[in-house]
């Protein structure tokens, strides 16, 4: 193990079947109201007919190392927590929505009670030594979570062994949600 922990999620797009179990597990675990979601599935089809390829991605907050939402938050409600996760303290959130506008991934939304919501990497579970709900439920084991700074961790080894990408690298936010391609 080296350095401070850096929580990272790795999504294996070769294994994901887009079943949405992660989306529903997240909603159940975190009591997300109807009509809202912290995680979602994207299906991207590219190519030239009939030579088409499809990629399925389970997406959520990227818990960026240089999070623009944290920089934009006027009250400190959006902040870094364990393992570099980006968390919103509800009691400090005014609902100004600067964080939502600053997010290149559109990963945040306004909860019906007024505060801003997003994926927490299920930090409450991680602190108990459990995996995030989406990782736990995934039937194809396409989601992996851990400390990328720990060379022995599954996420570090997957990223070392397989080709991967992040979304919107050009935004310069150093995201911690990787996709194995």
């Amino acid at each position: 193990m080296s350095g401070t922990p850096r929580y990272t999620m790795v999504v294996d797009t070769k294994k994901c079947v887009g079943c949405k179990a992660c989306v529903l597990a997240c909603k159940a675990e975190n009591a997300i109201p109807d009509g809202y979601c912290r995680s979602w599935i994207v299906e991207e089809i590219r190519g030239e007919f009939p030579l088409l390829s499809a990629e399925l991605r389970s997406e959520r907050c990227n818990h960026c190392t240089d999070a623009p939402c944290v920089a934009a938050c006027p009250t400190g409600a959006s902040h870094y927590s364990d393992g570099g996760t980006v968390i919103v303290t509800r009691d400090k959130c005014t609902g100004c929505k600067a964080c939502i506008a600053s997010c290149p991934y559109d990963a945040r939304f306004v909860h019906p009670e007024g505060f801003v919501e997003k994926c927490t990497f299920c930090l409450h579970r991680v602190r108990r030594g459990e995996q995030p709900a989406c990782v736990e439920i995934c039937p194809t084991q396409s989601l992996h979570f851990g400390d990328v700074n720990d060379r022995e961790s599954e996420v570090a080894q997957l990223l070392a062994a397989r080709a991967s990408k992040v979304l919107h690298e050009e935004a310069g936010t150093n995201p911690n949600l990787y996709f194995l391609v």
Binding site: V23, G35, C37, V42, R46, E48
Partner: peptide, 14 residues
Amino acid sequence: ETLEIVTTRANPLI
């Protein structure tokens, strides 16, 4: 080249 993106996300205001 075809590019089609389908998302299950439909968060209000987003």
